[in-house]
Every structure is written in structure tokens, then in C-alpha cells.
Design a protein around this nucleic acid. Structure first.
Length: 271
DNA sequence: CAGCGCCCCTGCCCGC
DNA sequence: TGCGGGCAGGGGCGCT
């Protein structure tokens, strides 16, 4: 289940192998993703060069001269670079053949992800245009979060998971960041004090940066790997630990549902 | 507009 | 051993 650090690691992993390469073939083995893969994607990109690969939120952006291919990994998706002789796996839905002889394969068992194309400026795409700031950018700071949260009754955890507020904070890291910031996930966003906003912002940046750094350590294995680098190696203080003792105070961690998502916190440490 | 719940889908785990 | 049911989750979307 890729969160932003896994997507960032994927960008860094595939970029050296695909940047500057021509797409010499595309096989869409299953177009039924969250939205259908465009019928004419192959017509549009075969013969064209991938100029660069970047990331916005959890979208991977493949830049071509004519437009952009947007790739989202949903929660079970991955991209991996392989030799063409590598046997296909079940749920390898798209196979991009490149002029350097390598293949990039899009794999997604649950098909929550997507592969789309836009001729327009990518910032103007409907899925991109309304997104909040990147969590690791200077635009995401305490003053911003404090101002935006005034008057909001939404639970703090749902607030920081709203992509219009800040992108890339998925369920796992929302749980972890709020624990580190000592904020009760149920607390209405509008009740967050300025110092609380400072802690939330700082901990979101810390937890994501640490995970990205960890992902980087597995980059050397990216080619021919399972395409899901470095994920569960991180120590999680609360996520998946409901009913177990708080690592800080020892009180039993509470598990609730917020927005249909598993939410774990310490009633003693998080207020 | 804010808030909330639904839904897409398969792998995995549990209980019978 | 096999099977059914429940759960997990990113995030867009539609309803209130």
C-alpha cells in the first residue's frame, strides 16, 4: 500500500532507467483500473520519448513532448524495471517496452490505481489542479495549517488526510504523525492551537522524510525487485498496534474508526 | 461549502 | 482442505 514515501522511492527508482528513452511498445493487458486506461494510450506514446519523471502528491508524472502520463499506484500498485525475458506476473496490467531494451511493468492486484493521459499542462489536470501543498515543501507550515483549520469541525486526522489541505498523508503516517505530535485524532481541526499546528506539521515532515530516506537505502535493488521497496521496515508506534501498550506511557492503545479508516492512538499521550 | 459515507477490488486471515 | 465472510485501504464522488 504505497504511501508518499513509496511513490517518491518509485520515482527515483524508475527515473534513471526511463528518462530519455523512447517507448517502443505498450501492451495493455488489463485496462480496467480505477478509470479505464485510455484506448489510444499506445497510439499516443509509442515512438515518443519520456523526457522526465516526477511526482505530485501520489501521482507519478511521465513527461512526454506532447503531454503527460499520470500514474497512481492506488494501494497495491507498483512499477518495476525488468528484462523482457522476466516472466509476467498475475496483475501485470501494463508493459512498457523501452528503447534501452528494458521493460517497465505496472502491477496492481486491487486495481485501485490508474494510468491516464493528458495533453494539457499537467498542473491543470482535474486530479492535480485542486491539490494542497506538498508536505515536505515550505508552503506547508504551521501558519498555513493554523489558518486553514480555523472554524473546521472535522477531526484532525481526517483534516490532515484531506488532499486539499496537504497531499500525501495516508492513513499510516497520519496515525504516526498525530501520535508523535501528541494530538488526539478526534480533536476538531479548528481547536488545534498554533503550537499544536507546529507539532503536527513538524511530525508529518519528520515521519515522511524518514520513510523516504529509508526507501532510498533500497534503491540499488529497484531493478528486478518486487517494486515495493523498504516499506514495512519502518517501526510504527501506533498503526496496527491497537490494544497493545503505548511505547511512551504503557497505556493500552485505543483503536477506533474515523472515516472508515483504522485509527489508533493513546488516550493518555494524545490530547 | 462542509462533512460524511460509499465504492472500486483482491489478498489475506479467521472460523467452521 | 476448502470455503465463505470480514477486513484492509486511496481518494474521487455524490448526497445531505
Amino acid at each position: 500500500m504505497p504511501e508518499l514515501p513509496e511513490v517518491e522511492t518509485t520515482v527515483r527508482g524508475v527515473a534513471p532507467h526511463v528518462s530519455g528513452q523512447l517507448v517502443v511498445g505498450l501492451e495493455v493487458r488489463n485496462p480496467s483500473l480505477r478509470w479505464p486506461v485510455p484506448d489510444d494510450l499506445a497510439d499516443v506514446i509509442v515512438g515518443q520519448a519520456i523526457r522526465a519523471v516526477s511526482r505530485r502528491a501520489k501521482y507519478l508524472l511521465f513527461a512526454f513532448d506532447a503531454g503527460h502520463m499520470l500514474v497512481h499506484l492506488g494501494m497495491s500498485g507498483s512499477l518495476r524495471m525488468v528484462e523482457p525475458s522476466t516472466p509476467l506476473k498475475t496483475h501485470d496490467h501494463l508493459v512498457f517496452s523501452l528503447s534501452n531494451g528494458m521493460q517497465m511493468r505496472y502491477h496492481d492486484p486491487r486495481r485501485f490505481g490508474c494510468v491516464l493521459w493528458t495533453f494539457a499542462a499537467v498542473d491543470e489536470h482535474d486530479l492535480i489542479a485542486h491539490l494542497g501543498p506538498e508536505p515536505l515543501s515550505d508552503d506547508f507550515d504551521a501558519a498555513y495549517l493554523y489558518k486553514l483549520s480555523r472554524g473546521r469541525k472535522l477531526a484532525s486526522k481526517l483534516f490532515v488526510m484531506d488532499s486539499k489541505v496537504v497531499v500525501g498523508v495516508g492513513n499510516i503516517y497520519a496515525n504516526e504523525a498525530l501520535f508523535a505530535a501528541e494530538i488526539n485524532p478526534n480533536k476538531p481541526a479548528g481547536k488545534l492551537t498554533k503550537p499544536a499546528c507546529e507539532r503536527v506539521v513538524a511530525e508529518i515532515k519528520t515521519v515522511l522524510a524518514a520513510a523516504i530516506k529509508q526507501g532510498g537505502t533500497t534503491l540499488r535493488d529497484f531493478v528486478n525487485s518486487d517494486g515495493q521497496p523498504g516499506y514495512f521496515k519502518q517501526t510504527l508506534a501506533v498503526y496496527g498496534r491497537g490494544g497493545q501498550p503505548c511505547v511512551s506511557c504503557g497505556e493500552v492503545l485505543k483503536e477506533i474508526r474515523l472515516g472508515q479508516r483504522s485509527t489508533v492512538f493513546c488516550r493518555h499521550c494524545q490530547r
